[in-house]
């Protein structure tokens, strides 16, 4: 599947940007030319040979702060996606099979979560659980999980009513068998799309929260934090907010592009191919 995504130009761009951001997250803190917490240079300086992106209001190197902050943003986004994935997909599949009570409860829970404004809710929960990125991201993950719940439930429902599942049941298959052998592979492509989408949402959320100062204590650098700080000094460095904004936008855009690319290769033929155990041609569907 991955190779097929790379055959699409959009897929290549998306994977390229995401790989670059991931590289920043891993190596960024080591690449940072200065200590991101250490001030002392000229404050609010423009770009120079020593400080490529200038310095902030405490004289800290902005490039170092962005490089160092990339880790928080990327890890946060991954955490959001994983929490949403686990909290959404498992009940999503099970809601089809575990009987009407479980179905009713999970459906109402999903509706409730969708109805809550999640940024506000995340603020409230961090107030309750303590101000930290893991708590905030966990909360956001749960808030996004209805997306996965719906996607996986819809895919499961369509498979559960199919004749091949009936054929398996007639041969004496258990529900567990049906989920493992038939449902799981059909649910994967839509989940992959949802995952790429939530990774993008995760980025925005982490950035929004850190912009508001939630989830990270002030000296620790984040993209949202840098953006917030830059916005305070627009009259001195009017171009400065563009840099973190561009980073956030590029990442979110790449995640959405990736989601589109996955959707494109997961069409009828594409899906068959991605599960095709490496054989190289698209099966012709003859009716």
């Amino acid at each position: 599947m991955f190779r097929r995504i790379l055959t699409l130009p959009t897929g290549r761009i998306a994977v390229g940007i995401i790989a670059f951001i991931a590289l920043l997250a891993v190596a960024g803190p080591f690449l940072a030319p200065y200590d991101p917490l250490e001030g002392g240079a000229e404050i609010l300086a423009g770009p120079s040979g020593a400080h490529w992106l200038g310095t902030d209001y405490l004289g800290r190197d902005v490039l170092s702060r962005l490089l160092d902050g990339s880790r928080v943003s990327v890890l946060g986004s991954i955490q959001v996606s994983l929490v949403a994935l686990v909290a959404g997909v498992i009940p999503g599949i099970l809601s089809v099979y575990l009987g009407s009570v479980f179905e009713w409860v999970t459906l109402r829970l999903a509706d409730t979560l969708i109805a809550l404004p999640f940024l506000v809710f995340a603020v409230a929960v961090t107030a309750l659980l303590g101000n930290g990125i893991p708590q905030a991201m966990f909360t956001v993950g749960i808030m996004i999980s209805p997306l996965f719940f719906r996607v996986s439930r819809a895919a499961t429902l369509s498979v559960a009513r199919s004749q091949y599942v009936e054929a398996a049941l007639i041969s004496g298959a258990s529900v567990g068998w049906v989920v493992r052998k038939h449902v799981w592979v059909k649910v994967l492509p839509p989940i992959a799309v949802a995952l790429a989408n939530t990774a993008g949402i995760g980025f925005v959320v982490v950035s929004s929260l850190t912009f508001l100062g939630i989830g990270v204590q002030p000296p620790a650098p984040t993209w949202g934090g840098v953006l917030a700080a830059d916005l305070g000094y627009l009259s001195f460095r009017p171009w400065a907010p563009l840099v973190p904004t561009f980073l956030i936008m590029a990442t979110v855009w790449a995640c959405n592009l990736l989601a589109d690319a996955i959707r494109d290769v997961s069409g009828e033929a594409g899906r068959a191919l991605l599960l095709n155990r490496g054989r190289g041609h698209v099966p012709a569907r003859t009716a």
């Binding site: 004749q163 054929a167 068959a272």
Partner: peptide, 19 residues
């Protein structure tokens, strides 16, 4: 035990397209 089996009308739908 496989005593009774069933053949559907449309094999395209009764065979899992991914198997």
């Amino acid at each position: 035990r496989g005593v009774v089996q069933y053949v559907f009308q449309d094999p395209l739908r009764s065979l899992d397209p991914d198997l």
